[in-house]
């Protein structure tokens, strides 16, 4: 039998550990947050004054004051377009197949382990693979297409894993109900699985894309460090069929490469440009992550179970 004092002692001890852990936890969190704040503060301090309209509408230049990020921003956007256009259908498709269609056996287990492993492969490895496959074997050259496909390969595992997580969160009673009223697998996927898991899928997609937009190593591997002072061909043309895919073959530069390039300049003014470009990149990533959170909230509200 425990007496009252012993119980009180036990509770006190428990609370003490509680407080100690809370302090450790707070400390851990503060380190992360403070580092980020210092980093952002440094970027703002160095680069904020360079952020004006001409910075966004100028091409890179040897004069720091005249240099801008137009070609890098357009390049980043187009590369992301290709990445999204390939990674989303393939990633979501693969995940739906694995969850809803594939039979559970050692092959699917092997695939599952591999996909999870691929998410942890260093990005430079994807760059090397892409250099051999896209740039040389398929002869896409150092183009927007090669870069977009490379980044798509890189974020494919992220999208597959998060889509599967989202699909798994759907209660099996929904599936059973659909089958009970005679729905086929495809009808189930189309009318129930995809709409209900859309929030989770979109979050995964956007986290993947946010990672891809800041990626430098694989792009440097395939595209080298290149300075571009022109824009790719417009996707719209005046004559039939009014759409052109020439821009996919165009050489390109992206934001992180532009930053890297400016950082290696001797003039201090270029370091400020790099900081300003860094700010723009951080804001772009922030907007993407913000969109992910917003979409998740919106889709969650619609789900009623």
């Amino acid at each position: 039998m425990l007496d009252v004092q012993a119980i009180q002692e036990l509770v006190r001890k428990g609370r003490r550990y509680d407080a100690i852990f809370a302090i450790i936890g707070l400390f851990c969190m503060m380190i992360g947050i403070l580092m980020l704040a210092v980093l952002l503060g440094g970027l703002v301090d160095d680069g904020a004054h360079r952020l004006n309209w001409t910075f966004f509408e100028n091409f890179p230049s040897r004069r720091a004051q005249r240099a801008g990020i137009l070609s890098a921003m357009v390049g980043s956007t187009l590369v992301m377009l290709i990445t999204a256009a390939t990674a989303i259908p393939f990633g979501v498709g693969a995940a739906i197949y694995l969850e809803e269609y594939a039979r559970r056996n050692w092959v699917t287990n092997l695939i599952e382990i591999n996909v999870t492993n691929l998410a942890g492969v260093p990005s430079i490895i994807y760059g090397l693979l892409a250099l051999g496959l896209f740039v040389y074997a398929l002869d896409f050259g150092q183009s927007i297409l090669s870069a977009g496909l490379t980044l798509a390969l890189m974020i494919l595992p992220v999208i597959i894993v998060s889509t599967r997580e989202a699909i798994r969160a759907i209660p099996s009673s929904i599936r059973e109900a659909a089958y009970a009223v005679g729905a086929t697998r495809w009808q189930l996927v189309r009318d129930h699985i995809v709409p209900y898991s859309a929030g989770g899928i979109l979050t995964g997609i956007i986290i993947g894309l946010a990672r891809a937009i800041g990626e430098t190593a694989p792009i440097i591997t395939i595209g080298a460090l290149t300075v571009i002072a022109f824009l790719p061909d417009s996707p719209f043309t005046g004559e039939f069929p009014y759409l052109s895919f020439e821009w996919m073959k165009s050489p390109f530069t992206v934001m992180p490469i532009q930053m890297f390039n400016w950082l290696s300049r001797p003039q201090a003014a270029f370091q400020e440009n790099a900081a300003a470009a860094g700010l723009v990149l951080v804001v772009m990533t922030l907007i993407m992550n913000g969109a992910a959170i917003w979409l998740r909230m919106r889709f969650r509200k619609r789900i009623k179970w």
């Binding site: 256009a85 989303i88 259908p89 979501v92 498709g93 995809v194 859309a198 895919f245 996919m248």
Partner: peptide
């Protein structure tokens, strides 16, 4: 979602043709 996917698949096929 499906419509979006369809459009992308078509776009990709076109791109391969003209590449």
């Amino acid at each position: 979602m499906m419509n979006m996917m369809k459009r992308w698949v078509v776009g990709l096929a076109l791109a391969t043709v003209v590449s």
